[in-house]
Design a protein around this nucleic acid. Structure first.
Lengths: 145, 145
DNA sequence: TTCTTAATTTATAATCATTATAATTTAATA
DNA sequence: TATTAAATTATAATGATTATAAATTAAGAA
């Protein structure tokens, strides 16, 4: 079910998109880090292996991967985009305290509204915000004092 | 059900928030324009009546109104925030062709996931993207030629 | 394997939304 | 009407993202 780097290579080759080292590294980072990283997260981490990496390349790569549908952009924050490998049936929860973004199981295809009968829906994002269990716990701690 | 400017005045006064001319104009604009305007939309339109208006005031006002819960921020676009008077039970659809944002009826409180049992959910946004009926029609037209 | 070339990467500047700062103005109360 | 803390304004600063142009490289051809 989950795609490997080899699967992604095939898909890009079929679309005549060059398999540059940088592109594969960005893809690999997203495959291995299911943390919805920002451009900066990806850039800073990949720089360890690729000191010459440019932030513009990270942007270019992510934009290209989004256009071909392999990557999904999260606009759950108002100042910075976050990225993930495209995958179905989940929503996103952002903890307003620790800023972490969590996936949660949800059949987004099941969300219907008669108002949209004549619309063509191509993307569905469900964004929840609030406090995650960890932050709820530490709130508890501090109120105990 | 729908709040008037007078209702908003009362709410702000109870919170000891000053009823400046600029703040009331921004609120009035949002009440009268259910178009999910951006800061620029609001700024450009209010300038006609308030030539001295500063964009920083529009930002300050919207941030304050969001903090007290009267206004909701939409991060459906990745480059620019959009604003609306807080109201329940609807999702948002953004047409990727004409860029218009539509409301659609949806009971967002009914969206559940067992994964979130231990989370405290404070905000729920449902963002769909695709083509609106008008843009689907004009696609039709152009393919007829 | 080497050569060729268009595509990609890089460094950098530019752009645009948003926030910060400090001086000026004003709402609300005495 | 006077007082004053809060709000507004003009402007600069910040930070994410995109544009530009020169240098590098992937991939196929020789």
């Amino acid at each position: 079910m989950t795609k490997t780097i080899e699967d992604f290579k095939k898909i890009l080759q079929e679309k005549n998109i060059r398999l540059s080292h940088q592109r594969l590294k960005v893809l690999e980072y997203l495959v291995q880090n299911k943390t919805h990283p920002s451009v900066d997260d990806i850039y800073i981490n990949l720089q360890k292996d690729l000191p010459s990496l440019s932030k513009a390349t990270v942007y270019n790569t992510l934009n290209m991967l989004e256009e071909v549908g392999l990557v999904n952009v999260l606009t759950i924050e108002d100042n910075e985009n976050h990225y993930e490998i495209t995958s179905k049936n989940h929503g996103h929860f952002k903890c307003t305290s620790c800023k972490k973004i969590y996936d949660f199981t949800l059949d987004v295809e099941e969300i219907k509204s008669t108002d949209l009968a004549d619309f063509e829906i191509k993307e569905r994002d469900v964004y929840f915000r609030g406090l995650c269990p960890e932050c709820l716990d530490s709130d508890q701690d501090s109120s105990d004092k």
